[in-house]
Design a protein around this nucleic acid. Structure first.
Lengths: 146, 146
DNA sequence: CTCCATGCAAAAATTTTGCATCGAG
DNA sequence: CTCGATGCAAAATTTTTGCATGGAG
């Protein structure tokens, strides 16, 4: 992996925390930094392992709690709305999904127009693309009214 | 929820099992059916709960093992390549991702061209769309050579 | 007989919770 | 002093594994 970068400087993080009414602590800076400074979207476990180098007494539970706090306040986005459990798909042709961010229902979206996306050159050059799938993050009708 | 549908008839399932060299058992039919007959992409737990009605002695472990077998043989696709754990994203503007299906590394893809997808009418009409994200399933360079 | 799918129980791994403490304001 | 963030330990949940059994070919 290349060297760590920082997409958002600390000051920016602090500013966003304050805007969200969150206190800024060394742990939080470290956690945010581990995420923002790493393009690989590390898991809480991975964040924990990395952070322990500089914060040997931090608890894994703190990492979980903090990341959850961040996401509830919009400082980070949840990349895996369905992570709670594996999900499988019987439709093996390429297609897409709507995921209700609230109730986590998943609905198929089959639309030929969506299958004609031109792969970015960077993606095509650097990897072997097996396929792609678009996740529409939505509020379904029933969650919308509530 | 509407009534269950069956996207792939049993005969088709049997044919595909045979093609993959898998034996066909009542449990497997039931499991496949629970997935294929349900548009909501149920979790293994949910499949288990549903199947117990007709197969009271089935074990949850069997459901996990079977779904894993199915996906390794291409009978179903893995909808959640990152499910093992939550992942967060510090980049809160809309963007996309490459996910290596083997090592699970996630890399950002920022490309304005990808942000101009026309939302399918069905999606726009039925829900409030908060955003979307394209997941490119790829083999990264290092996994590709191995 | 051999092989593999199954069920069961145990183990492992992951995530959440309760609670006491600490520190900033 | 008060409140929220933290660390620790325990609990809960989810997933995997080992092993004995049983049926199909």
């Amino acid at each position: 992996m290349g060297k760590a970068r920082r997409r958002v400087p600390v000051e920016e993080f602090v500013r966003r925390c304050k805007a969200a009414g969150l206190s800024v602590t060394p742990q939080r800076i470290a956690i945010y930094d581990a995420i923002a400074g790493n393009p690989s979207h590390p898991s809480p476990e991975a964040v924990y392992r990395r952070i322990r180098l500089t914060h040997p007494t931090i608890a894994l539970a703190t990492v979980y709690k903090t990341l959850d706090t961040f996401s509830r306040h919009g400082l980070v986005a949840l990349l895996t709305p369905m992570h709670e459990t594996v999900r499988y798909d019987p439709l093996t042709i390429q297609h897409h999904h709507m995921i209700c961010v609230k109730c986590k229902e998943v609905v198929d979206v089959v639309d030929p127009a969506l299958d004609e996306i031109r792969l970015p050159t960077r993606v095509r050059r650097s990897t072997k693309v097996l396929g792609y799938s678009i996740h529409f993050n939505v509020l379904c009708p029933s969650c919308r009214v509530r």
